[in-house]
Amino acid sequence: MALEFSSETYKKFEETVGRYPKKEAAMLPVLYLAQQEFGYLGPEAIAYVAQLMGQSPARVHGIVSFYTMLTMKPIGRYHIQVCRTLPCALKGSEKITSFIGKNLGIDVGQTSVNGRFTLSEVECLASCGTAPMMQINDDYYEDLTEEKVAAILESLK
């Protein structure tokens, strides 16, 4: 069955497009809507957005693949993104990442068997003064220590 927005999301889509001086400018917000609705942006979702936006699916595919926050594959319920860039690395982010990996039994780039956690390393999230840090879904967790991380993971398991 082909993917489609719920009527509620479709309304949001129309509102979003209406906010912009040109329809194509709404591409990223519309892709966010689709990612929220469908979980990830697989070929069906991309083809659907392409059709909604009046563009070729290839073009939309190219856009999706450019941005790290748009995902073409399903990910865990909690997407743990540990900053790996220099300011965080100076404060021990490399050890935080391996600690999380061991704690969850997954490597960077993997999703836990129960589908609950995906572990990623990401580049600077502009939280360098409170390094090391990670983002889980939309939320920032800062000034991390192994103890703090263990408690956070426990609360999400």
């Binding site: 906010r19 912009y20 040109k22 194509e24 400018a25 709404a26 591409m27 990223l28 917000p29 892709l31 966010y32 936006m53 190219g62 856009i63 450019f66 941005y67 790290t68 926050m69 748009l70 580049e123 600077c124």
Partner: peptide, 25 residues
Amino acid sequence: IVHRGAGAYICGEETALLSSLEGSR
């Protein structure tokens, strides 16, 4: 209009930002 990017350092460069805001890579 508050417009959210989607994860790309380069979009801080002003012409890349424009491409992104135009709905492109």
